[in-house]
Design a protein around this nucleic acid. Structure first.
Lengths: 196, 196
DNA sequence: TGCATTTTATAACAGTCGATATAAAACTAG
DNA sequence: CTAGTTTTATATCGACTGTTATAAAATGCA
């Protein structure tokens, strides 16, 4: 029917995501995207629309592949274990992040969400999902006796979300295991059962 | 000796800080700075050096006037009260932040520190000071019996720093009192004495 | 083999960026 | 008043930004 594309869309999106993730939206130029994806600027525009649309696509992929996926996977565990595993994974991920890209969602939350209603929505919605995940585990844990904190499930979920975000941000400045685990440990201890 | 300056340096720095604070470093143009400060670009360069130096000056002022000042003020209170007051202040400040500028230090931590060693230093040093403030209160509170958490003072300080940063970030997306207080309340409860 | 359609590549667009060269203006000291 | 010094203002620099007009290349269908 027409000239076929000679690039792999997933590979291109991965390369673009690495650019946006490391250098941010404003810090990533179209020439840089062109170099790292192997596509010319014109091809990028033809395939994905403008720079903002491409960034949005990479962010949506990040949310699906990194965040929603982790929630779904942890959700199969017993509630208290799910919370422990979730934090342990994110800590390890933060320590393995040698170029300190951080969490792409949080980066977007601070760089573009403040002046872009569309991104404000994705960020807020995703944060809500994470909070809801925590809340579900806490409610279930309170029911089966593995969580015995006296605070409300609502507040505990908010607290865990705050701890998670704070840990993710601080990991970009001081990626030290002692710091990250120190941030999280008291929150887990508060839930009532020691980690192991 | 020479032609006198016809501007008030503090007023100019305040205006510049507002620009950087709301729009970030990259998002703030020299033309915008010129408009908001009332100085021409040439005058800004003559008085403060380049854009980076001007930003650095506004960030240093922010740290001194907003963070170090709050620490010093809270430090005069009894230890457990100091922590409560510190968080209550920051929550109120976040809720009053109608244009959602957030914390300028955290903004700098995510926007420029990753690719600027000089700013990495300021950010890391200031975060250390905040952590040390928390640790001092916890040690003192454990000594006078107003704090009775079983975790180490080191980990509790790390935890409070994480909660603070997470709360500051989430406040930019969802500036709701229920969320911010929900994030903080379990951390304060963990210290052992109800807030009031 | 053309025709239609889509993707490629080249080149260039207008706009903005941070920074500066130049010179006039405003002051003090002598 | 003159000389010296610093701040102002104007204008402009080259570099880079996101984006697009244009046309060639590559396919499937008739």
């Amino acid at each position: 029917m027409a000239r076929p594309r000679k690039f792999n869309e997933e590979e291109v999106l991965d390369a673009a995501a690495r650019c946006f993730w490391t250098r941010g939206f404003d810090g990533t130029s179209l020439r840089g995207l062109s170099e790292n994806t192997g596509l010319t600027g014109a091809s990028l525009y033809n395939a994905f629309g403008d720079k903002r649309a491409l960034y949005r696509k990479t962010l949506d992929r990040y949310v699906a592949d990194s965040i929603v996926e982790r929630i779904a996977r942890c959700e199969t565990l017993p509630p208290r274990t799910a919370i422990d595993a979730f934090f342990a994974e994110v800590i390890q991920r933060s320590l393995d992040d040698s170029d300190r890209k951080g969490c792409m969602l949080i980066n977007a939350a601070l760089e573009i969400a403040p002046h872009d209603a569309g991104f404000q929505d994705v960020v807020a919605t995703t944060l809500f999902e994470m909070e809801a995940f925590f809340r579900r585990q806490i409610v279930a844990g309170k029911a089966d006796g593995t969580i015995m904190a006296s605070q409300s499930a609502d507040d505990l979920a908010r607290h865990l979300l705050g701890v998670l975000v704070g840990m993710r941000v601080l990991a970009r400045i001081r990626p030290e295991r002692a710091l990250l685990e120190g941030i999280v440990a008291p929150a887990l201890a508060l839930l009532g059962v020691p980690k192991e």
